[in-house]
């Protein structure tokens, strides 16, 4: 519909919209994150919800302890190999539509701890990530920026066609395989559906 006509009608008190716009408008303004802190970044996440940065402006202050009531998982910190199965399990328990923000260097790639034997080198080896925010830890402003990026992403989602969200696609897979702790490493070391590169499990020669 013509934008000018829409504005003119709006002045007359008639709101014209599409279902998609209305739908996405509702979704993007009430993203409820899961109350789920992993490490250092969680403190900045808490700081973001407090008075100074006030995440409530984005309709996202309602932190839900249960994954079943949450729309957004903020991976706020280092995911260790011991924790990764639980993170994937929590993600599986979330209802669609669900989004993931990888907050901070550790959640993206292992960050400063990437050499660690017990550190998962990026959560996107197991679950899809929508927004990555760099930083160690990212400032609260960066988390707000990630929220805005996520809102833009939601706004641009069509309800039909190839780019439609997973929950409107009957063939989409909802469950993601949960890795199992093995004798030396997690098995498998990555989910080939989201992370197409094979990673050798077990150990190779010593690093130089």
């Amino acid at each position: 519909m013509d934008e000018h006509l829409k504005i003119e009608l709006g002045k007359q008190g008639i709101v014209v919209t599409t279902l998609q716009e209305l739908y996405n408008w509702g979704r993007r303004n009430s993203i409820w994150p899961m109350q789920f802190g992993l490490a250092c970044c969680a403190i900045e996440m808490i700081a973001t919800t407090m008075a100074r940065f006030d995440m409530a402006r984005f309709g996202a202050e309602v932190f839900r302890p249960s994954p079943r009531q949450a729309d957004l998982m903020i991976i706020s910190g280092t995911v260790t190999k011991k924790m990764a199965p639980q993170v994937v399990r929590l993600y599986n328990q979330m209802a669609e539509p669900r989004y993931v923000i990888a907050m901070g260097a550790c959640a993206i790639s292992g960050g400063p701890f990437k050499q660690g034997y017990n550190v998962l080198k990026g959560i996107d080896r197991y679950i899809p990530v929508d927004v990555h925010i760099p930083g160690c830890p990212p400032r609260p402003e960066a988390l707000l920026e990630a929220f805005m990026a996520l809102q833009k992403k939601i706004d641009a989602q069509p309800l039909t066609g190839a780019g439609r969200p997973r929950f409107l696609d009957s063939e989409a897979r909802g469950e993601f395989p949960i890795p199992v702790p093995g004798e030396h490493d997690l098995e498998p070391a990555s989910n080939r559906g989201v992370w197409p590169v094979e990673i050798e499990t077990g150990t190779k020669g010593p690093r130089d």
């Binding site: 017990n118 080198k121 004798e183």
Partner: peptide, 22 residues
């Protein structure tokens, strides 16, 4: 600290670390 199924003792000097990072 490590999970029950883990076999090695990682702080030993001869522990070979997984080589799985970018």
């Amino acid at each position: 600290l490590m999970w029950e199924e883990f076999k090695d003792h990682p702080m030993r000097k001869d522990f070979v670390e997984p080589d799985d990072y970018e």
